[in-house]
Design a protein around this nucleic acid. Structure first.
Lengths: 228, 228
DNA sequence: CCGGATCCTCGGTGATACTG
DNA sequence: CAGTATCACCGAGGATCCGG
């Protein structure tokens, strides 16, 4: 982190010098879904100081993890996009997210869900071996209580909607609603892990579409065992 | 990092809160080879302030990534050992180290090799598909120039010796010399990547044992393409 | 509104010295 | 050997302001 290195000729140390700064890897995560503009990133990273976001974007660009692209129209027009080196981080970050999800129980105080949180979780926890023969599109709508406020001026989405397409033992997950989901799952944000684990109470989950697909959906994912 | 979280209910964010602090992942890396004591860690992490090492160890212990074990004899007797959750980080860190190794060219100013750097690199860059039929023990001795000094009071190893056992398409890599290596490779630290890539000049490498195994050794590893 | 730049504060980090 | 104590410093946090 910082300009100060670790003094070691080591791939891991070098990686941490390059993307170990605070917020850096979350920026990379938020750009998985495609190019994003400064304001999109700021929205997906509630609480990041604007000067830090600005500094990280410049550092990550200098390093070659992302590059800025001028977009013709509309808007003032500059988006940030991952380079090939940046996309090469995806499998690593999925693994790190999978590891970290063992420390997730329910949203803590002041913790919110963002679309990138959900899409990355779906990809990280996906079990290809359990997806044989599954071919469906799922839409997930997670609502967050308005009380969960970070502070003045910090906006966040009161409902996070993402969708996932499962096909050929692979999953692709994108922010936003699906055009025609086979199953739509709506619940509170704090129930997300229960839905993935298959332990959610039916009374807490509102379904639309092919209801029988819910257990199919849950079996697609594996949550790591709790620590200890 | 720090006590301040990211405000997101996300596995990746949680992981970064837990092990994203500076030095934390390098401590985990240095404990792969087995339990180590405070002084061993300090030696393997040249430049880490003692208070930071102390703080990280306590934090990582609180979280459950490692735990301290009282060792009967000899010495005052306390070693740090990875827990199961800590060992679960290995594959992730190998991936991160593999990603970061694309930014390695040669040791920069003030950069040293440590045994953990070399053993983790061997494991990270190993290609199982290229190890079919290979069954051998290699010893690697990398010498570092004495001029590469970090500062007063910072000791480091002037020669890093590790060994690797390749068998059944797997590699195990350990610090220290091998009991009876099939091939011993000695060169300067700055030539390490050349040896792994198979592009080292024969004049720069001193071999002992079955010399014909050198190309076999080099083909066991793949270095990522340079960035850009 | 977008894309930052600027200013200030606070606390983690780095470096050194010291102790059970 | 295994840390704790102390202090300077600089990056992160937080708010505000500015040019297109």
């Amino acid at each position: 982190m910082s300009r100060r290195g670790y003094g070691q000729f080591c791939g891991l140390a070098r990686a941490l010098e390059v993307v170990g700064d605070r917020w850096a890897l979350l920026i990379v995560r938020d750009l998985w879904g495609g190019p994003g503009r400064y304001t999109d990133l700021a929205k997906g990273l509630p609480g990041i100081p604007s000067n830090v976001l600005s500094a990280r974007l410049r550092e990550l660009e200098d390093i070659g993890v992302l590059h800025r692209v001028a977009v013709p129209r509309p808007g003032s027009g500059v988006v940030y996009e991952l380079t090939e080196d940046g996309r090469a981080l995806q499998e690593v970050l999925l693994g790190l997210g999978r590891w970290g999800s063992r420390y997730l129980t329910r949203p803590g105080d002041g913790e919110v869900l963002t679309p990138a949180c959900v899409t990355s979780a779906l990809q990280a926890l996906f079990r290809p071996e359990a997806a044989a023969g599954v071919r469906a599109t799922f839409e997930l709508a997670l609502s967050q209580p308005a009380e969960r406020i970070l502070g003045p001026g910090h906006a966040w989405l009161d409902e996070v909607v993402v969708h996932a397409r499962v096909e050929a033992r692979r999953i692709s997950s994108t922010a936003g609603p699906a055009v025609e989901p086979d199953l739509r799952i709506a619940t509170k944000a704090e129930r997300m892990l229960d839905v993935l684990a298959g332990t959610a109470s039916p009374r807490e989950v509102r379904l639309s579409g092919d209801t029988a697909l819910l257990p199919v959906f849950s079996r697609l994912f594996r949550l790591p065992a709790a620590p200890g």
